[in-house]
Amino acid sequence: MTTRLRLLVLVAVALALTVGLTGYVLRSRGDASAVAAGGSSHGSSHGQVRLDAPGRILFRDTAPGPGFGQLASVPTARPDGPRSTGGLLCDRLYAARGTGICLQRKGPVPATYVTVLDSGLHQVRQVRTAGFPNRARVSASGRMLSWTTFVQGDSYLRDDFSTRTSILDTRTGRLTDSIESIPLTLNGHAYHASDVNYWGVGFAADDNTFYATVRTGGSTYLVRGDYRRWTARTLLSNVECPSLSPDGTRVVFKKRVNASANRPWRLYVLDLATLTETPLAELHSIDDQAAWLDGHTVLYGRVRPSGDGWDVWSVPADGSGTPRLLIPDASSPSVQPGP
């Protein structure tokens, strides 16, 4: 082999190695990017999460790995399929009609940052408040936002807990930092007490009427509030974390049914016209503000018996059927209805 031929062979080999190495590096970078974007044991698609995409369930990804805590979504028709992740970390979240709310705890001193999101997950506004993230809701129109934090204690089972619940009107920009000052009528009488705590506010379709839990004197009540008139009235006792049905006629809530700290709550649905309560087929204790998958089904986060993770389950809203595992390794669900 001549010297010139040897040189040509060496050049060709070098080029081949370079091309192969470049392809490997690009593939590796692509794989790493996919993992960084929130890959999990359940699979992850590369589509961007949007809050105005119809027919999807939004939730907090709790699968072990780099995507833990990120906002994610799956198709309503295939909730156990690959999930898309948005790269945004949230401890509690909710979305409706292209508007989202993300609660995240930051800093060594307990503080919650409440981020209002547009349909493309861009920050519209951010509010800092004291305490730990707890509950979040967006009205069906996307206008009225509410959130609750624990400012003392970290469980509704503790007698010393204290909450702060805020309301934001995104149309006017009005922020009510705490609703505890709202005039309360309890059992038909004007009521004032220093231990009043509200949580779990959710608005009706008129963006004025809202339902929430109030606790005072060691008891909890369902209240109906009027935002413009700034009044609230109790409707029923032993109701926590109400969530209004799509047609506005019912609320799903958790009810204290046991004094034991292991199984204290059960999910019920309340008919608002008759105040008739229906226990649901979910027998596990559920410490969550359930949501509605549709007019016939509710969904909620459920802690595993081992205590090592969360999953999203669903159950019929009429008391029939059995609970169904909907989204493994997930919490804080909300539904973006189909077209």
Rank of each mutant, 00 (worst) to 15 (best):
T2P: 15
R4Q: 15
L7D: 15
L8F: 14
L8H: 14
V11Y: 07
L15E: 06
V19K: 11
S28C: 06
R29L: 13
G30Q: 14
D31T: 10
A34M: 09
G38M: 10
S45H: 08
H46I: 11
H46K: 15
Q48F: 09
Q48L: 12
A53Q: 14
P54G: 09
L58M: 13
D61K: 02
A63H: 04
F68P: 00
G69M: 06
A72E: 03
S73A: 14
T76G: 09
A77T: 14
G81N: 09
R83Q: 14
T85V: 12
G87M: 02
L88C: 06
R92F: 09
L93H: 03
A96R: 03
A96F: 02
A96Q: 07
A96W: 00
G98R: 01
T99V: 15
R105H: 12
R105S: 14
V109P: 02
V109Q: 12
T115K: 05
L121K: 11
Q123F: 05
Q126L: 06
T129Q: 09
G131P: 01
G131C: 04
F132A: 10
A136T: 07
V138M: 01
S141H: 10
R143T: 02
R143M: 03
M144Q: 12
L145K: 11
W147E: 01
T149W: 07
F150N: 02
Q152P: 04
G153E: 06
G153W: 01
D154E: 09
D154I: 08
L157V: 03
T163S: 11
S166P: 08
L168S: 08
D169M: 05
R171I: 03
T172D: 08
S178C: 06
I179W: 00
N187V: 08
Y191K: 01
Y191M: 00
H192N: 10
S194V: 07
D195R: 12
V196E: 07
W199Q: 10
G200C: 05
V201K: 02
D206N: 14
T209P: 08
T213L: 00
V214L: 05
R215S: 10
V223D: 05
G225W: 01
D226V: 07
Y227P: 03
S237Y: 06
N238T: 05
P242R: 00
P242L: 00
S243Y: 00
S243V: 02
P246V: 06
P246E: 09
G248W: 04
V251D: 00
K254W: 01
R256Y: 02
A259N: 15
N262T: 15
W265S: 03
R266T: 07
R266S: 09
V269P: 00
L272C: 09
L272K: 04
L272E: 03
A273D: 11
T274I: 07
T274M: 04
T278A: 03
L280K: 00
L283Q: 14
I286H: 02
I286Y: 04
D288T: 13
A290L: 04
L293V: 03
G295A: 13
D308A: 08
W310M: 11
G319V: 02
S320D: 09
G321V: 03
T322E: 06
T322L: 07
P323C: 05
R324Q: 13
S332N: 12
G338T: 15
G338V: 13
P339Q: 15
